[in-house]
Amino acid sequence: MSKRLGLVIDQERCIGCDACTVACKIENNSIGHWIQVETRNVSQKDTPSGQYPDVRFEWLPRLCNHCSNPPCVAACPNEALVKREDGPVIYIEENCDGCQACIAACPYNVILYNQDKNTIEKCNLCVHRIDKGIQPFCVICCEGQAIYFGDLNDPDSVVSQKIASREGFQLIPEAGTNPSVFYCPPKPRNRL
């Protein structure tokens, strides 16, 4: 079976620090933030939900889901977006004419338009690193050690184990995209 490279992000360990956002921008020299950390269930970032003192924070780093059925690839008229056999959905800058059809097609709102270049930009799963056998930059810079990278098709990989043991879930499963980015929900509290 071929590889299906992807990420697992553990919300239990995510402290919402934005280091992934900063790391990604530096590594990829991007215009926008390819990973953005959302504070769940509230309208303002870094405000808790609920009423003091019964409140909670839940962070969700959002990035390209490297879908198995990527609508962006289907929508792109120029072969600027490619689904690699081993999983990553990558964009090829020189093929992009900035039509933004992919942005409209993506249900996750994680493809950005780069006005300076009139191209789109998004997470490439650090293929320039993983092809050399090193982990994506966000993984090694994650303060909470909450991001795992690996082969989702290998049942023994850390990512597969996390998904199995921690009820890993995908975003917007009803879109039928079958993302290669999974999330592990926060664990229930062991109250006094």
Binding site: C17, V55, R191, L192
Partner: peptide, 22 residues
Amino acid sequence: TQVVVVDTRFTVTASKADEFLG
């Protein structure tokens, strides 16, 4: 480990606690 946080603010640390005493 069970984690209890005592603080005057609900912080990032408190968000990871099993119990928060504000």
